Computed example of a mutant assay.
Amino acid sequence: MLVGITGGIGSGKTTVVKLFSQFENVAVYYADIEAKKLMNTSLEIRKNLIAEFSEEVYNEEGLNRPFLAKIVFENKEKLKILNSIVHPEVHKHLQNFIKENKNRDYILYENAILFENGSHKMCDVIITVTAPKEIRIQRVIERDKVAREAVLHRMNNQWAEVKKTIQSNYIIENLDLTKLAKNVEIIHNKLTE
């Protein structure tokens, strides 16, 4: 069973995924982490990114993330192009991961843009992590050391929480760690019944 887990920036998806990953026989696929790895290792992605964004998209360390981020977070069309280059390779990688972990109780597929890129269609169950907007903004400012405007800009490139929650099987509000752990356990128990 493929369980998609998503949530807007700063919602605390990572915290929720860590709680789920403590259960035995659950495999976790982190789409963002794998995408970052693939952007540095896949020759197909590299070739297409250079063709679209110029040679400057890579430097001696690998992917020039600040250069690429500046382009795509200021231009929704460029963000769509980036996703159209990276997403198919991540999808192939995920399919291999699913095959390798087919004996698990379920696979947790963490993806910040699960709905935005259509990946929700392949999930059996969807969990959305939420938190109030101001809390999310503060979390990202503290975590990424960025200005409020930068956080708002990123938020504007994601679907609104309400749009995600109405299409989800489970909604987890991430405000209190004790309640959070209890909610995760309840959902895990339902998924493994």
Rank of each mutant, 00 (worst) to 15 (best):
L114A: 07
I107T: 05
L108I: 06
H120K: 12
H120L: 05
I126C: 06
F115C: 01
I113M: 06
A131Y: 03
K145L: 12
Q138F: 11
Y109V: 05
R148A: 07
I141C: 05
N101S: 08
I98G: 02
I137D: 08
L114K: 00
E149D: 15
Q138L: 14
L108Q: 06
K99Y: 12
T128S: 11
S119D: 15
N111W: 03
K102W: 01
H120P: 05
K133Y: 14
D144R: 05
I113E: 00
L114H: 08
F115N: 02
R136S: 13
I113F: 04
K145F: 08
K99H: 13
N117P: 02
V140H: 02
I127Y: 12
D105W: 03
I135E: 14
E100G: 03
G118P: 02
D105F: 08
P132Q: 13
E110N: 12
P132L: 12
P132C: 10
D124F: 02
K102I: 07
E142G: 09
I135Q: 09
V140Y: 03
I107S: 04
E116K: 08
S119P: 03
K121E: 14
A112F: 04
Q138I: 11
R143G: 10
S119C: 08
R136M: 14
G118N: 06
E134H: 13
C123S: 09
E134K: 15
F115G: 00
T130F: 11
